[in-house]
């Protein structure tokens, strides 16, 4: 565990908590893509199946359980409890265009052709693009609430911090995982446009509004 990975994990945790609290407090999931949240639930489920086979640490197990539970809770709030506030007219990204290629790619490029390993690989590929329905929704409505922007910033920072963690681990432990690294770069790059808007607008107290 190094500082980049710890802050990355905490940033990830913060993002999930921000989203849950936002939906709960406002009793609304307006502006949030249910499809991205469904994809994240699928990501955590397929990645953390090793909870039953491999013990890493109490920290690792605890965080995995939190991520799985929080993602299902978020999906529940969006599709069940606060369904009336869900922006389904704008949440129209075709998720099969993300799920199917991720799955095919995980069959082709993986560390080991075994069920758990392929599901892990699938989760890495899918996570890298799972935010696209959310970014698509923001681009369709042309704006995002500040709290949604904070959520996106925390979530985007997490993989960016993991990139630093992987650079550190490469030099300190000679450890690297090319599948995670390439997917992590893709994932972080997808947020770049948003990061720019966040720094130039949201941090200056303005609403994140896209040019018409």
């Amino acid at each position: 565990m190094n500082i980049f990975r710890l802050t990355g994990d905490l940033s990830h945790l913060l993002a999930i908590i921000i989203l849950l609290v936002k939906i709960w407090k406002t009793r609304s999931c307006a502006g949030i893509s249910g499809k991205s949240q469904l994809l994240f639930a699928l990501v955590y489920t397929t990645r953390y199946l090793d909870l039953v086979s491999t013990y890493i640490s109490a920290y690792n197990t605890f965080m995995k359980l939190i991520f799985i539970c929080a993602s299902y809770a978020t999906v529940y709030l969006i599709y069940m409890k606060f369904k009336a506030t869900y922006d389904h007219n704008h949440d129209t990204f075709r998720v099969e265009f993300l799920i199917l290629p991720s799955f095919v790619l995980s069959l082709l490029i993986n560390h080991d052709f075994a069920v758990l390993e392929i599901l892990w690989t699938f989760s890495i590929y899918l996570e890298s693009v799972a935010i696209l329905p959310q970014l698509f929704l923001v681009s369709k409505t042309g704006e995002a609430e500040s709290i949604t922007s904070h959520y996106l910033f925390a979530l985007g920072s997490y993989r960016g911090l993991y990139l630093l963690n992987w650079i550190y681990r490469y030099y300190a432990e000679s450890h690297y995982d090319l599948i995670a690294i390439v997917a992590g770069v893709v994932q972080t790059v997808l947020y770049c446009d948003f990061f720019y808007l966040y720094v130039t607008k949201v941090l200056k107290g303005k609403k994140l509004q896209l040019p018409a």
Binding site: R5, D9, H12, R47, D50, T54, I56, N60, M63, K64, F67, H111, W120, Y162, N165, S174, H175, Y176, D177, L178, I179, A180
Partner: peptide, 10 residues
């Protein structure tokens, strides 16, 4: 290296 390691990250 990238072989044989359990995935120890989140």
């Amino acid at each position: 290296s990238s072989d044989g390691n359990p995935h120890d990250e989140l």
